[in-house]
Structure formats: C-alpha cells, structure tokens
C-alpha cells in the first residue's frame, strides 16, 4: 500500500516527486461516488462485451463462464454499460446505503 499523502514527510518524497508504483491509483476507491448501481441479468446477456469495451473505469472483467462482471469498488454508476447493452441485460437502480 502506498503511504497516505497526509502521512508522507518531506524526506519520504521521491526524487522529483515521482511515483514508483505503477498503477497504484487502483488503491483509490471510486465506487463510493456512485448514486446509481448497475444490475446485470446474466440470463439476457449474449456476452457481446460492449459493456467491457465501453466502461470508462475499466472495471468490468470476464468471469470463468464468459459473463461480464462489474467491480463495485470502482464503478461510478455512470450507466454507459446499461445504455449500450443491446439486450438490456443491465439496468441502473438507485444505490442503497
């Protein structure tokens, strides 16, 4: 884990304030930005992969059965997957606490 920015001392700043842990932004949770949540109905899914291709977060992955699953740690609930799904397998519902 990357040390939190409010704990880093000046001596711990990398040379030139560079970052040496590629992709470490993945530690940052964006899922709590969400007000709507996508709900997937696999029975309608034709595995076309459009949701995966168009997801701005890159948080949709293919599971062992070939269906596409959404990682709620990152999903911001934008609804593009639901909008672009050709079979309406994904619908957006209000996020419940």
């Amino acid at each position: 884990m990357t040390k939190a920015e409010n704990e880093i001392t000046w001596k711990e700043i990398n040379i030139g304030a560079t970052v040496h842990e590629p992709g470490n932004a993945s530690q940052y949770k964006t899922g709590d930005w969400r007000s709507n949540v996508p709900v997937v109905d696999f029975s309608k899914c034709i595995k076309c992969a459009l949701c995966y291709i168009f997801c701005p977060e890159g948080c949709i992955t293919k599971n062992d059965d070939g269906f596409f699953e959404i990682d709620m740690y990152y999903c911001k609930g934008c609804g593009i997957c639901a909008e672009e799904c050709p079979t309406d397998s994904i619908i957006m519902k209000e996020e419940k606490e």
Binding site: T9, A17, H20
Partner: peptide
C-alpha cells in the same frame, strides 16, 4: 515505469517543495 510530474494537493505540496529546497 515511473510517473513524473504528478499533481500535488495542498496536503503534500509543501513537503515536495521542501524536499526540492533541501
């Protein structure tokens, strides 16, 4: 890979500048 030229919010900018000054 390294990332150079990040954006620094107020919570870390002073540390970055002081490191440079030193």
């Amino acid at each position: 890979p390294v990332a150079m030229g990040d954006f620094a919010p107020p919570v870390i900018f002073t540390e970055a500048k002081w490191a440079q000054e030193m």
